[in-house]
């Protein structure tokens, strides 16, 4: 278990949290658009790992972002939700391939990867904004924020993925 992947994931964890809180929390496009790019951790995390560990790490990830951005535990809740639904999404999008032992995210098509990312971000953001506003009175704002911020996050995540892509063709 303790190998280069392990350290690589720790490094990724720290870098993503710092990028999120020091750069992306200060973007404030049009006053309120701050993409939540730390979700990329859930996207990049190795597939065949114990799910409980994954949930625990995601919780920790969210909590770290929460502490930095004074949002109590909203990011933690959203991140755990995203982590829990990740295998479900993967089976839904990648189909039978996902059950093979040799399944790797980079072997799938671009469209599949993009759809996966889109669904992951949507689930995460919807939980996040629902909890942030936390009353049905303002359900319009939840919808508006989710609809506006999901594409922004998606854009930045796609940029990051292509930037740090390890694919050698």
């Amino acid at each position: 278990m303790i190998n280069s992947t392990f350290f690589f994931n720790i490094l990724r964890f720290i870098l993503l949290v710092l990028t999120q809180v020091l750069v992306f929390n200060n973007l404030n496009f049009f006053g309120y658009i701050n993409p939540l790019i730390y979700i990329l951790f859930l996207y990049w995390y190795p597939v065949k790992q114990p799910r409980t560990t994954f949930l625990a790490i995601s919780f920790l990830l969210g909590l770290c972002v929460d502490i930095f951005s004074d949002t109590v535990a909203i990011n933690a809740a959203a991140s755990v939700t995203g982590a829990y639904f990740r295998p479900v999404l993967m089976r839904f999008i990648f189909g039978v391939n996902y059950d093979f032992q040799s399944f790797k995210l980079r072997n799938t098509t671009k469209v599949q990867q993009f759809t996966f990312l889109l669904f992951l971000i949507s689930i995460h953001h919807f939980t996040y904004f629902t909890l942030e506003i936390f009353s049905l009175r303002d359900s319009f704002i939840v919808l508006k924020r989710t609809l506006v911020i999901v594409p922004t996050t998606l854009l930045f995540c796609t940029l990051f993925i292509s930037l740090f892509s390890t694919q050698k063709e």
Binding site: L55, A56, F59, G62, L63, D66, I67, F68, S69, D70, V72, A73, I74, A76, A77, V80, T81, A83, Y84, L131, F134
Partner: peptide, 26 residues
Amino acid sequence: FIFLFAISLLLTIVSNTYQQSKFLNS
């Protein structure tokens, strides 16, 4: 999952009615 989600929900609700958490702040 439910356990972790409940913890974060609880923290959020407590801070809703009372005040910012003593420990989880920047």
